[in-house]
Simulated assay, not measured.
Amino acid sequence: MKLIVIGGTGRIGSQVVQKLTAAGHEAVPAAPSTGVDLITGKGLDQALQGADVVVNVANSPTFDEASLEFFRSSMTNLLAAGDRAGVGHQVILSIVGVDQVPQLDYYRAKALQEDLLRQGPTPYSIVRATQFFEFMDAVLSWTSDGDTVRLPATPIQPMAGADVVDAVVKVATGAPLRGIWNVAGPDVFRLDELGRVTLAAHDDSRTVVTDDTAGMFAAVPGDVLIAGPDAHLAPTHYRDWLQKAH
């Protein structure tokens, strides 16, 4: 099977390419560095030639309002090019609860990407994952001030990037779902609690203060970032991952 991985040189995409290749598939990364521009469409037709599946894990360079135009243009161009190339399956990586947080520009942009895919001409699959373990350091940095990190008590169910990769590979090599597959980590935390666990593992002396107005996730209502009962639970626990990572 020939699979084109859009964003195939990034954190998740490069691992998806490696896993697919190891499983005996022809996996080809497509990114600006390989001559593919999702926004102008340059290089897309050549990249998709002979492809059975397109796996789209490309991300917007920003999380603000500009992300809406990124996902609108990139998804529209990718669907049109895929249709011309006779691609039989389009897969995207999205976020659990993405359609329930319209107050966040980035979540609204990802929800738009999903809608465009659903309305497109090609059988599709949407893999919705929870927040990645790997992003926790960035989350801490957004609201850090000297010795204090302010975090809301938002419930989250984070998962390892490697487990996200496994989920994407599984879906990409199967029949189109024509729907959503939710994947999540095995444990639910409050974000402020997760911050304390992370700082302790780093031997970081900063203090986490619970502040329900702090950072991007303060805008998230209730438990929308928690996967529902139908979700596939990934095997890696955060505390185990932290021990291995450090």
Rank of each mutant, 00 (worst) to 15 (best):
D99R: 13
V101W: 09
V101Q: 08
V101C: 11
P102M: 15
Y106V: 15
K110S: 10
D115E: 11
R118W: 12
Q119A: 11
Q119L: 10
Q119M: 09
G120Y: 06
G120N: 13
G120E: 13
P121E: 15
P123W: 14
S125P: 11
I126R: 06
V127Y: 06
V127M: 10
T130G: 06
F133D: 04
E134W: 03
M136D: 03
M136C: 03
A138N: 09
V139I: 15
V139A: 05
D147R: 08
L151I: 12
I156F: 01
A160I: 05
A160F: 02
A160H: 01
G161S: 04
G161Q: 04
V168R: 02
V169M: 03
K170G: 08
V171I: 10
P176E: 15
L177T: 07
L177N: 05
R178M: 14
R178L: 14
W181N: 13
N182E: 14
A184R: 04
A184D: 05
V188T: 10
R190S: 02
L191G: 05
L194H: 01
R196M: 02
R196W: 01
T198N: 07
A201E: 06
A201S: 09
A201W: 08
H202M: 15
H202I: 15
D204K: 11
D204R: 11
T210G: 03
T210S: 01
T213M: 00
T213A: 00
A214Y: 03
V220W: 01
P221C: 11
P221Q: 11
P221R: 12
L225G: 06
G228M: 10
A231H: 04
